[in-house]
Write a protein that binds this DNA or RNA. Structure first.
Lengths: 233, 233
DNA sequence: GACATTATTATGTAGCTACATATTAATCTA
DNA sequence: TAGATTAATATGTAGCTACATAATAATGTC
């Protein structure tokens, strides 16, 4: 036995995917309606729907009400990144975690942060610069902006002790998260914080989150030399 | 109107998420059974199930048959990366794309590639080194290993013309994809291929795919200086 | 012909029932 | 007590119906 009942949504998803792969339905083609597939496979429409939703989520097809289902013209590789709380990342390596607040100020957002949030004009936000340490060695430096309008409680949090990263993850859900990843040469400023050599290749993660259009936080995290980001294995 | 009917699975998901956020159910706690929630909300179990599946997918809760639903002790940020075919990435910037095969050899896998695939012993694979160009400037250099046992047809493909990246994406679905991202200093070897300066910070993406335990391909893609990877906006 | 209005239609959601499956919990051996 | 067997149970899946929604297609009006 394959372990898949004849009409499982997985087997139907695989059949449809196979048809797409062998170009029974090529890129850009319109697929038959769910009902049509259900009749062909001899299963319920809901089962086809379940299969289609999975194909849509994984980027193989695109669905639109009334418009029907189309094979995506541009296949994409979708990978889910798991970005844990830094404390956990460090502790899972069996190392001691420490968090150190470096600076905390209230400022108007500079253009770069406004761009991240797509704000038309500057807004006063709390800027928190902090260092995550792994066995007392600099691990990740983060430069974070927190919107005081959306998250006023943050002013009452003692960020010397509590970690903005964790406080926000635990207290502020977000509905949208933009991520930008790139490499950057270490500068003199990095050297003093991350203990890196000038010219080291540093891995940078920029993350911006919203709750229903309202900005929450935007941060640039610069990792120590040698840092790697994985997908969930 | 909020646009959400009282019993929509989204509104129920949001209610449950809210209860988790205000620590009605704290990290590690067990949630009531779906049926129990359904009775409380006055909706069907299937609706709670739909809501729970979404929460599980986004990493808020963990579900196990018979075990029930638990609030994840470690909140994670899950981000979906869209990795397009390089040709499309270049063309969407309005640039001209070109692909250039640099070398094509059959070799036994070195330890690093064996580790990526978790292979116990070396295997003969096709190694393809190629360059993606954007307006004739080096864009991404890829060093790819393709498993000849899993993908024998690759030997019949003219890789001078056809692009291994695209051929595989279009012809070989995968069931598992591991991703590793990091920054690396440009070396002398990079300089000659990517036209980068020695010491430049280069963004590296390593990707390994399988189809049901069988290795397909493992590649290291080194991007030109300044490259950025985004999440889908 | 241009534009607003109204049908049509394919997907999306909500509700129900019944059964499958995986795991834990309980029970029965040896 | 240890280990195997069996029961209990929460989630997962498959099937059905009915209606909602969004987007296109058709129609009507000027």
């Amino acid at each position: 036995m394959t372990g898949k009942p004849r009409h499982s949504w997985r087997s139907i998803r695989d059949s449809i995917r196979q048809m797409i792969l062998d170009t029974t339905y090529g890129p850009g083609d319109k697929l038959p309606r769910d009902e049509e597939f259900a009749a062909r496979f001899g299963c319920a429409r809901s089962t086809v729907h379940r299969a289609m939703r999975d194909l849509a989520e994984s980027g193989v097809v695109e669905r639109r009400r009334k418009g029907g289902t189309m094979v995506r013209r541009d296949p994409v590789t979708r990978a889910t990144l798991n970005i844990p709380i830094t404390r956990l990342e460090v502790e899972q390596k069996g190392c001691a975690y420490r968090y150190q607040l470096i600076r905390k100020t209230v400022q108007d957002t500079p253009p770069a942060i406004m761009a991240n949030f797509a704000l038309p004009e500057p807004r006063r936000m709390l800027r928190v610069e902090a260092l995550h340490l792994c066995d007392e060695a600099p691990y990740i430096f983060e430069d974070r902006w927190i919107c005081l309008e959306t998250v006023p409680e943050i002013e009452t949090v003692d960020l010397e002790v509590e970690n903005a990263n964790e406080w926000l993850v635990r207290n502020r859900p977000y509905s949208r998260c933009d991520l930008r990843l790139y490499a950057r040469r270490g500068t003199e400023a990095d050297r003093s914080v991350l203990n890196s050599a000038v010219g080291d290749a540093l891995f940078v993660m920029e993350r911006t989150t919203w709750i229903d259009e309202a900005p929450i936080t935007s941060l640039r995290a610069v990792a120590h030399p040698g840092y790697q980001l994985f997908t969930q294995g």
